[in-house]
Every structure is written in structure tokens, then in C-alpha cells.
Simulated assay, not measured.
Amino acid sequence: MNQTFQDTIYRPGYYGKKRQSAENWLDETIKKWDNKGNADKKQDIKEKSSAIHNICFSRQIGVGALEIADLLSGILNYRVIDREILECMTQDTRLTKKIIEFYDDHYPGKMAERFSMLIKEKPFLKNDYARQLMKAIIVLADTEPSIFVGRGTHLILPGNTVLSVRFVCSRDYRVDRLSNILNIGRSEAKTKLNIMDIEQHEFFKTVYHNKETGLDEFDLVINRDRINGSFHAARIVACAFEQKFGLTAL
């Protein structure tokens, strides 16, 4: 198979599916929000916001969580918010300003209320990046039901409003999967995973003050060595979501 250098660069969440860029996704989302600007739509959004339930995926790099999220999206008709979208929203001040203006317009005073509450409940969210990430997650979680993948979103959103799922697997599973996706040797795949694991650890150290991931943080833990099929994993999550919130998901 012909392969370019770009093909061997693994982005967490990548599994070979062509995806819309984060910038284009956000531009389209903002346009959609703008089209909901009349009074009736505002009222409709306000009424729905209190009933919105989201799903948060936490995962080891390379475990295949984004593929499962895309399949789950097809079952629940929920949008998928991946790491790249959250990173784009957090780092682009233009987008951050625009989404917060939209949120404040539709939910007067709610951002300040939620932000103040979360800062008290989550004292580790001190630095500017963490606060921007928090604002981005609040806006996305309150405007439309979503499946969040990565970035510790389960640590920010209230546990009674989300189904939090952790995906784990053996190192061999991750190495083999990365090797197959990028068509590279296992040794190279191991090296790439080592680098990304360190980057992920540093992210949580910086944003969440070195918070270790404890399995008691999650409603559901799925071991991909035991539940290998991505669609089977998605169905399990959908069932757990239905059971937790009493919603018809299947």
C-alpha cells in the first residue's frame, strides 16, 4: 500500500475515517446556532437545556473510543465532540468569544452561574486553559446532547447529567491496533504510544493537577480485550445510557 509521511502520524482518535476539520465543524455549528436566533427557538432551547444528558468517554490512547462514539452517534443521534474540536474551541479566542456570546444570549446569567459553581466544586481548574476548556464544554453540553471523547470532560460535567464511560485494554491491544491502522511495525507503534501516553499524562497533570484516573469515577468500564467489537461496545453504552436516564436509546 502506498503510504505518505502524513499517514504515519497518529492523532488520538484517528481510526482511518475521513473527518471534517474542527474549524469547519465549528463554523457550521455557529451558523446553525445563528439560525436559531428567533424568540421561539430561544424558548425552545431553554426548555430543553434542563433535560439534556450527555455521554463522556475517557480512554487510553489507541483504544478505539472515537470509532465507538461514531457508532453510538448513529444509535442515539447524538453529535460527537472529539479532542480536536475541544482543542480548537479552547485555543481560538475568536471562537470562544462567539460561543460565549451565543450562550449568554440564550441563557442569560447561566454561564456565570455554572462557571462559579464549577470553580467551587472543582478547585483544580485554576489555569486559563482549564477555564477556557470548562467554558467550551459547558456551552456544548447545554446546547445539544453530545458524546464527548477525551479531555477529561467527565471531571467537569455533573455526574448526574452524564453517563461516564472508561475504555481500557492491554498495551498489546493498543500497539497492534495502532500498527494496523498506520501500517507500521510494532516497535514504531510502541514508540508513538509512549510519546502520546506521556503527552496525555502531562495534560492531566497541568489541567487537573495530576489527577489519577480512578475507576470509581465512571458509570461503566469497558475492556476492549474482552469486548473487541466496536459496535458491540457502542450497544453496551447505549443500553447503560437508557438504564441510567430512563431514555429509549435502542
Rank of each mutant, 00 (worst) to 15 (best):
N2P: 14
Q3I: 15
D7I: 03
T8K: 15
T8P: 05
I9D: 01
I9N: 01
P12I: 10
G13I: 06
G16D: 14
K18G: 09
R19K: 15
Q20I: 15
Q20E: 15
N24R: 13
D27I: 03
T29P: 05
T29G: 04
I30G: 03
I30M: 10
I30T: 00
K32Y: 07
D34Y: 09
D34M: 15
K36V: 11
A39Y: 06
K42E: 12
D44E: 10
I45Q: 08
K46P: 02
S49H: 08
A51I: 02
A51N: 13
H53M: 09
R59A: 07
Q60C: 04
Q60P: 04
I61Q: 11
I61D: 05
G62W: 00
V63G: 01
I68G: 01
A69K: 02
G74Q: 12
V80H: 03
V80M: 07
I81E: 01
D82C: 06
R83D: 03
I85H: 08
T90I: 09
D92F: 07
T93G: 11
L95K: 12
T96N: 15
T96H: 15
F102G: 08
F102N: 12
D105V: 03
D105Y: 13
H106D: 02
H106S: 03
Y107L: 06
K110L: 06
E113M: 12
R114W: 11
R114I: 14
F115H: 15
L118F: 14
E121Y: 04
K122P: 12
K122Y: 08
F124H: 15
K126Q: 14
Q132M: 12
L133E: 13
M134G: 09
A136N: 03
A136H: 00
I138V: 08
I138M: 06
D142A: 05
D142H: 07
S146Y: 05
I147S: 03
F148K: 00
V149W: 01
G150Y: 04
G150D: 08
R151V: 09
T153P: 00
T153R: 02
L155N: 13
L157W: 02
T161E: 13
T161C: 08
T161V: 05
V162R: 12
V162Y: 02
V165A: 11
R166G: 01
V168T: 14
C169T: 13
C169D: 08
S170M: 10
D172L: 09
D172S: 08
R174E: 01
L178P: 00
S179F: 04
I181P: 01
L182Q: 09
N183H: 09
G185P: 00
S187D: 05
S187K: 09
E188N: 06
K190D: 03
L193K: 02
N194W: 01
N194E: 06
I195V: 13
I195S: 00
E199Y: 02
E199G: 01
H201R: 10
E202D: 10
E202Q: 13
E202N: 12
K205N: 11
K205M: 02
T206A: 10
Y208C: 13
T213Q: 11
G214K: 15
E217A: 13
E217T: 07
D219N: 13
R224A: 02
S230F: 02
A234G: 04
R235M: 07
A238D: 07
K244A: 11
K244Q: 10
L247A: 05
T248V: 13
L250I: 10
